[in-house]
Design a protein around this nucleic acid. Sequence first.
DNA 1: ATGATCACTGTAAACCTTTTCATCGAGCGA
DNA 2: TCGCTCGATGAAAAGGTTTACAGTGATCAT
Lengths: 332, 332
Amino acid sequence: MTDHKLGHVAVTIKEVARVAGVSTATVTRALSNPEVVRPTTRERVREVAASLGYHPNRAARGLITGRTGNLGLLVPDLANPFFPSIVKGVQGRAHEADHAVFLADTDEDPAAEAGLVRKLAKQVDGIVLCSPRMAEPELRTLAAEVPTVLVYRRIAGVPSVTAEFLDGMRQAISHLVALGHQRIAYVAGPRRSWANRERVRSLRAVARKSGVELCEMGNVAPQFHGGVSIADRVLATEVTAVIAYNDLVALGLLHRFAARGVAVPDDLSVLGFDDIPLAEMVHPALTTVALPKEEAGQAGVDLLLRLLDSHQEVRRELPTHLMVRGSTGPAR
Amino acid sequence: MTDHKLGHVAVTIKEVARVAGVSTATVTRALSNPEVVRPTTRERVREVAASLGYHPNRAARGLITGRTGNLGLLVPDLANPFFPSIVKGVQGRAHEADHAVFLADTDEDPAAEAGLVRKLAKQVDGIVLCSPRMAEPELRTLAAEVPTVLVYRRIAGVPSVTAEFLDGMRQAISHLVALGHQRIAYVAGPRRSWANRERVRSLRAVARKSGVELCEMGNVAPQFHGGVSIADRVLATEVTAVIAYNDLVALGLLHRFAARGVAVPDDLSVLGFDDIPLAEMVHPALTTVALPKEEAGQAGVDLLLRLLDSHQEVRRELPTHLMVRGSTGPAR
DNA sequence: ATGATCACTGTAAACCTTTTCATCGAGCGA
DNA sequence: TCGCTCGATGAAAAGGTTTACAGTGATCAT
C-alpha cells in the first residue's frame, strides 16, 4: 500500500495512462471491460500496466463501485475441527474469484453473532454464515440487510448450502442393521441446533422404516466433553450401537468407554457424524457419516457471488458418504 | 455498505455536518481527534452522528490515510489443530483494536507463501506471519516490504513472538528422567522447520546436561501420518521413551503402537509438543509441552500495532508448560 | 454529398473522507 | 488601542478509480 521502508510509491492509473499514451478511462476499460477497447490499444495498455506492476487501488475502486471485493465468513468455533475445512474451501474459492476473506469466530455465542455480522457487513460485499443456533427470525432479518449465504442451515428465502442428511442417515442405519443391530441409541446435540433437529428428524424417519428401536438420549454440548459426560448413561441402556450427534461427541464416548473397559466395537458400536480429521486418528478409528466441508465452503462462495451479481437465490444440497472404519462391528 | 434490499442509503459525513450545523472538517475532527474541538461542539456532533448511525466509510478513509484498518494473518495449514487457536487470538485482539483480519492458508506450500503475502499486503496495514519453513532471506525481504510480525519464528531485525523452547524441553526431560528414562528417542519434524531446529538444539543441550542418551530419528511430516510412518522404527530401537516433534506426530505414534499391541506408557512413554485439543481426547491422554497459542496470536497483533504506529521492533518470548497426562510413566 | 450510425476514446464529475491552509474572533501584553 | 497569539472552525484540495457523457473520425445507406 504505502512505501514501508524503501521509497517506492505505488504506481497509479495515471502513470499507466501517461506511459501508454491514453487516458485513464481507457486504462480502466482495457483492464476491466476489455471488449470495448480496440485490440491494439488494449494490448498496449495491458503490457504497460504489467510492466509497471500496476494494481488498482482497492480503496479507490471500492469508493466508487460500492463494492469492497471482500467476503465475510462467520463460524461458531474455529477450534471445532469441523470448521477449518469449511474455511479452507471458502478461502480457496474466494481467492480464485479475487476476493479476500474476513474471518470471524463467535466463540459459540449466538448472541454475539448478529452484532459481529453487522460489524463485518460494512466491510464486505456479502457473508458466508455458519450459524447453527441463531434464531430463525433474527437470521432472516440479517439476511435482508446483508447479502448472505447460509452454510449447514436452511431457511426459506435465503440461499443455503446443506448436505443430504436423510441419505446419510439411511446409509448409517443400513450399515448398522446389516451388522445385526436392532437397538440403537442417538446422543443428541444442542436442542436449538438446526443440524441436530435435522438429524433427529431423518433418524426417526429411517428408524421407523427399517424397524429398529431408537433410544434418544438427552442433549449434550457438541464437543468432546459432551460425549464423555453421557457415556455412562449410554452404557446403562440396552443398546448395541450408538450414533453420536457428531464426531467430537463420538470421540468423547470412545474415550470414556475405553476408560470403563468397554470394548469397541465388540461390546458396542459407535458411529459419528461429520468425518473430522481426528476420526481416523483414534483407535479404533471412527465409523462416521462424512459431510462435505471444503466443498460446502466453495459452494457457499459460489452462491454468494451469484447472489451478488445477479440476485439469484439458490440452494445447494451436497451428498454425504458413510465412512466405515473400526468403531462399528457385528452386534453382540 | 450499499442498500441491499431496502432503499436505505448509508449516511455520510456531509449529512452529519448539515444536521449538526458544522462543516465536515469539524465532524471528522470531533470523531477522530476530539481534543481539538470545543467540548460543546464536540458533544453535539457526536450525538448527531450517533443518532444518525453514522460510520465513516472505510474505503474513503483508506484512500486518504493510506491505512486500511485491516490486518493479514497467514498460516501454513488451518487443518493443523495448532493454528486455529492462534487465529482466535489474533482475531480477538484485532477486533478489540477495531481491525479486521484477512486470513490466508498456504496449504503447507512455502513457495506459495511469498506470493500470498504480497497479494495480501496491498489490502492490509501489516501481516502476522506463521511461516515455519520459508527461507530466511526471503522472509527478510518480505518483512522489508510489508510491516510483519513473525509468530513462532525468530529472525534478527524482525519483530517476533516465540516461546521458551529450551525451558519446555528442560521440563520434559526432567519429567522423563524422574521417571527413570535414560534412553530417549526424538522424532524430528521437517528439516527446514525453524521450530524443529530449535527443538533439536534445546533437546541436545538439555540431554547433554542431564546425561540421557538421545536417539534422533529421521525427519517426518509434522502430521499424524508422519508419526504412523515412523512408529515401527521407534520400536526397533532400545528406548523407553519417545519425544515427538509435535502432538500430531505423537498421536500417529500412539495409533500405530496401539495397533502393534505396544502398551503406552507401560512399554513405552510418549511425549508430544504443542498441546493441541486432541492431546487430551485420546486414550491414554498425551503428555505434552504446552505452547501458548491464543496468547501468541494476541501478542502478534500487539507487536504489529506497535510496529505500525511507532516503528518499534520488539520481540516477545512466552512461557511453556509441561502437561503431564497418561502417556508417560515409569521406565520399564 | 449528406446525414446517420458506429466503434473508439477522452473529459470531467463523482465517490467520501481527511488534512492543509486560511479565516475569524477573543484574549492579552504593551 | 494596536498588534499578536491562540483556539476554533470552515473552505477546499487531495487521494485513485470508475463512469456518464461528449467528442472524434470512419463507414454506410440514401
